[in-house]
């Protein structure tokens, strides 16, 4: 069994818009580690959500995958390239909601307002596994208990509007986990939530991951969330990967000027009374728009820099 659940190589996505073509992703390469949390961090337009949608093959016209591989090695089946699957391949049905499931930013849109919560979680089980309705409801109740919903016997018969935002997100997480996915993709799962609720949901996702030992791909713009959640971090900017490394490498000793800029721009206790650093002030004259290939450094991290910048790095290392 390979170490990496997913190996994404040179993934490219284009969108034909009203007024031209947008390159949403260019040469995106990174791995999703088995049994670990990989976080993609980036600002709007970085392509982080597009990447997640590619893994689920949810890119709809006018968007399309124009190149690259998404090499998926499931625990229990032969490996295949998700990007190359034909649209009607049965493996796609198993992939979506089966071996890979997703938690979105807005829990209300992921839940149907006209079915009870229990119904929806059980439905997720019945879609992918051959069990009786009673068994499905029992498992649904177990999973709801596990994501921290009290009074499950009563709550299971309620409708999503009877739940608060945080509770709804718990239900969505239960739905996502109930089929024991090998990969859970969380696309900004706490962005719409209050900070105290966010802390609860983050703790929940982290604890469940430790329990279930599944892989998680966590997409966020918030470096604080990344620091708390991730084992490995992928920094994206305008559809490209700029830096990949362990959470300590990327957040404590960032190499790429853009990563350094992002970190410096966060207002924190230390910045009180001082001007905040902006990306521009940190990046200086380094050109972020010219693509450079990802190079692996001595410490194992990967970074996209010009050869001049790389040379500078080695000098400062010595």
């Amino acid at each position: 069994m390979a170490d990496n659940l997913l190996e994404i190589r040179d993934l490219a996505v284009e969108f034909g818009t009203d007024i031209g073509t947008t390159h949403a992703l260019r040469e995106v390469s990174f791995d999703v580690l088995r049994g670990k949390v990989t976080a993609i961090v980036g600002e709007s337009g970085s392509g982080k959500s597009v990447t997640a949608n590619c893994i689920m093959r949810l890119i709809q016209p006018p968007g399309r995958i124009t190149g690259g591989k998404i090499h998926f090695s499931p625990n229990d089946a032969p490996a295949y390239d998700i990007a190359a699957l034909p649209n009607k391949d049965p493996r796609l049905l198993d992939l979506r909601g089966g071996s890979v499931s997703m938690v979105f930013q807005e829990p209300m849109t992921a839940l149907s307002p006209v079915y009870t919560v229990g119904n929806q979680v059980a439905e997720a089980i019945l879609c992918h596994r051959n069990v009786s309705k009673e068994e499905a409801f029992e498992e649904a109740a177990d999973m709801l208990r596990r994501v921290g919903i009290d009074n499950v016997d009563r709550r299971i018969q309620q409708y999503p509007f009877e739940f608060s935002g945080g509770m709804r997100q718990r239900v969505v997480i239960a739905m996502a986990l109930v089929c024991h996915p090998q990969l859970l993709i969380c696309d900004e799962p706490t962005t719409a939530l209050d900070v105290t609720i966010q802390a609860e949901i983050l703790t929940l996702i982290r604890d469940l991951q430790k329990d279930l030992k599944n892989s998680v791909l966590f997409i966020t713009h918030d470096l604080g969330v990344v620091a708390q959640m991730a084992d490995q971090v992928v920094v994206m900017y305008q559809g490209r990967v700029l830096e990949v490394g362990s959470v300590r490498q990327v957040l404590k000793t960032p190499v790429h000027p853009y990563t350094r800029g992002l970190l410096a721009a966060i207002p924190g206790l230390a910045t009180k009374g001082a001007r905040l650093a902006t990306i521009a002030s940190v990046v200086g004259d380094a050109d972020l728009t010219t693509p450079h290939p990802l190079m692996t450094l001595a410490d194992g991290r990967q970074v996209s820099l010009s050869s001049a910048q790389l040379a500078d790095l080695e000098l400062t290392d010595d």
């Binding site: 390159h23 337009g45 392509g47």
Partner: peptide, 22 residues
Amino acid sequence: MSEVANQATPAVVTDLGTETLQ
């Protein structure tokens, strides 16, 4: 998918050229 719509217009490659578009 919102990612694309979100970019500032000048970043989009256009048939019209960014200057006129703005």
